[in-house]
Design a protein around this nucleic acid. Structure first.
Length: 489
RNA sequence: GGUGCGUUGGAGGAACUGGCUAACUCGUUGCCCUUUCAAGGCAAAGAUUACGGGUUCAAACCCCGUACGCACUACCA
């Protein structure tokens, strides 16, 4: 059997979508599993919707995900170029072949005429299929239309191709994930393969590219199922070997509609910006439609590749559950060594003056605040009180409900007096505060929790946060006590 | 409207070619731990496998119908 070659062919009309990322992943896994090649092709035939910015985003996102391609626009390969707009000169040749073989014909219909036909059909509640009125135009008729200045589009002759290679009008293929799929080709209109401006259309260009790039397996979203029949026929008409196809279910938003911006992040770069780890995103997306055989969900791409079988992919749509992604992200964050994490988090701490802290203090701060992080960006709101020296912003509610209570004032007064003499190390403070809590509990019946709350509220302006002892040490005795004093009435 | 694909607890999903009380993970709830919030540990609740028929000793798995969802139905990709 020849080498397995798969491809991902995004259209640069937007940033790389998670759905595309998942498709890319499954292609990548399939290639890896079968020792094949993973090809990246940019489908930018529609110049109007395409932009270089998106091309860059696609490259960057795929790279960030670790989905490295063996052949592509930047790395090259034996079957380039890998950007459709650079392949425009190779498309006409096969159009001519199709024309010569009688599998395609020129169509002079105007958009208005087509539109009218369509309306007519919907008015009569008939399914619309192109009428093929240009199929048998004589040379004279064509010349006349050309003389009028009309430029023809080229249409593919479905019926002819179907008849040439199949016994009935039913076209069937064996899908890698969905099994046998079929369609009555009489219901497919003769579609345009080359626009009147000379540009190839999607369904035509993919076939030429896939054939010339020797793609053996086409794994893509199920929104392409209906295109598959058209494409198979072109492959056959041109005498190309037909690749195997595999169609994945779609990814839907929690409300079962298409995943769109209003649901939150949709592009890989959006997720990254929001503080998601690409490894977590990739792992999560792999679980949409696929399940590990050992039930262990947190897995590296290599582990997934080893366990991956295309036929086991679920063929139904799946819902993108942000909650589970968040959980997975938190699991991945936990695995990152602090040394690494503290660098990664700097990106989310730009609103603070990091020079206020020594490297040791900064490291300690990350150590004590990293535990509850779900998103990297959560760090931003978790650490404001480590900055600002003697001043800290107090939450108004905390001010009235916690700091100004009699209990808190009592605790703080004693704290300020006693702490003045304490040696300001974590070890020592730990002991001292334990005794401190014990004292209030025994003498006044204050719950340890409330005693600590008083101190925490005064020093951090909040009632919840990182480990209190470590926080005090990072802030230093001077700053800590200054804040505590300020809280006294 | 037509065509195609799909439907297992709130979500992801397991259950090999029909055979035990329908896994596991997220979420939810409760408990524990505790200087707070989390995290972590433990436990529980939650499914007559969309619905209705049929085949069979036996069906989530096979067949038929219904409903619902999604996709496609472009000189977009």
């Amino acid at each position: 059997m020849s080498e397995v070659r798969v491809r991902i062919a995004p259209s640069p009309s937007g940033n790389l979508h998670v759905g595309t990322a998942r498709t890319a992943l499954f292609n990548y896994l399939f290639a890896k599993k079968n020792n094949g090649k993973f090809v990246l092709r940019i489908e930018d035939t529609d110049a109007e919707r395409t932009s270089q910015e998106y091309v860059d985003n696609i490259f960057d996102s795929l790279k960030a995900l670790g989905l490295n391609w063996d052949e592509g626009p930047d790395v090259g390969g034996n079957y380039g170029p890998y950007t459709q707009s650079e392949r425009f000169d190779i498309y006409p040749k096969y159009i001519q072949e199709l024309l010569d073989k009688g599998f395609a014909y020129e169509c002079f219909c105007t958009p208005e005429e087509l539109e009218a036909e369509k309306e007519e059909a919907t008015r009569n509640k008939k399914p619309y299929v192109y009428t093929r009125k240009c199929e048998n135009l004589t040379e004279e008729e064509k010349a006349k239309l050309r003389a009028e200045g009309r430029k023809p589009a080229i249409r593919f002759n479905i019926a002819k191709a179907q008849k040439a290679f199949h016994e009935s009008s039913i076209l069937e293929f064996d899908d890698l994930v969905k099994g046998k799929l079929h369609m009555d080709t009489d219901l497919i209109g003769d579609f345009v393969i080359m626009k009147s401006n000379g540009a190839p259309t999607y369904n035509y260009a993919v076939v030429i590219d896939d054939a010339l790039m020797h793609i053996t397996h086409v794994i893509r979203g199920e929104d392409h199922i209906s295109n598959t029949y058209k494409q198979i026929l072109i492959f056959e008409a041109l005498g190309f070997e037909v690749p195997r196809f595999g169609h994945l279910g779609m990814i839907l938003a929690p409300d079962r509609s298409k995943l769109s911006k209003r649901h939150g992040a949709t592009a890989v770069s959006d997720f990254v910006e929001q503080g998601y780890l690409t490894d977590a995103l990739l792992n999560f997306v792999a679980l949409l439609g696929w399940a590990p055989s050992d039930g262990e969900e947190i897995k590296t791409v290599d582990e997934i590749a080893a366990d991956f079988r295309i036929g086991e992919i679920s063929s139904s749509n799946s819902i993108f559950e942000y909650d589970k992604l968040k959980w997975m992200n938190s699991q991945y964050i936990k695995k990152i060594p602090t040394e690494e994490l503290k660098e990664m988090l700097k990106k989310y701490l730009t609103k603070y003056d990091l020079t206020e802290l020594t490297d040791a203090q900064y490291t300690r701060m990350i150590e004590i605040t990293r535990e509850p992080l779900t998103l990297l960006s959560d760090i931003t709101d978790a650490v404001p009180y480590f900055f600002g020296g003697k001043n800290v912003e107090i939450d108004p509610e905390v001010q009235t409900n916690t700091i100004e209570t009699e209990l808190s004032q009592d605790v703080l007064k004693t704290f300020v007096e006693q702490a003045e003499t304490w040696e300001w190390t974590e070890e020592n403070l730990h002991e001292k505060l334990e005794a401190f809590r014990g004292y209030f509990k025994e003498q006044k019946g204050y719950k340890p929790k409330f005693t600590m709350w008083a101190i925490r509220a005064a020093v951090t302006g909040r009632t919840c946060g990182a480990d209190m002892v470590a926080t005090l040490v990072i802030l230093g005795k001077e700053n800590s006590l200054a804040r505590a004093k300020k809280a006294l009435k």
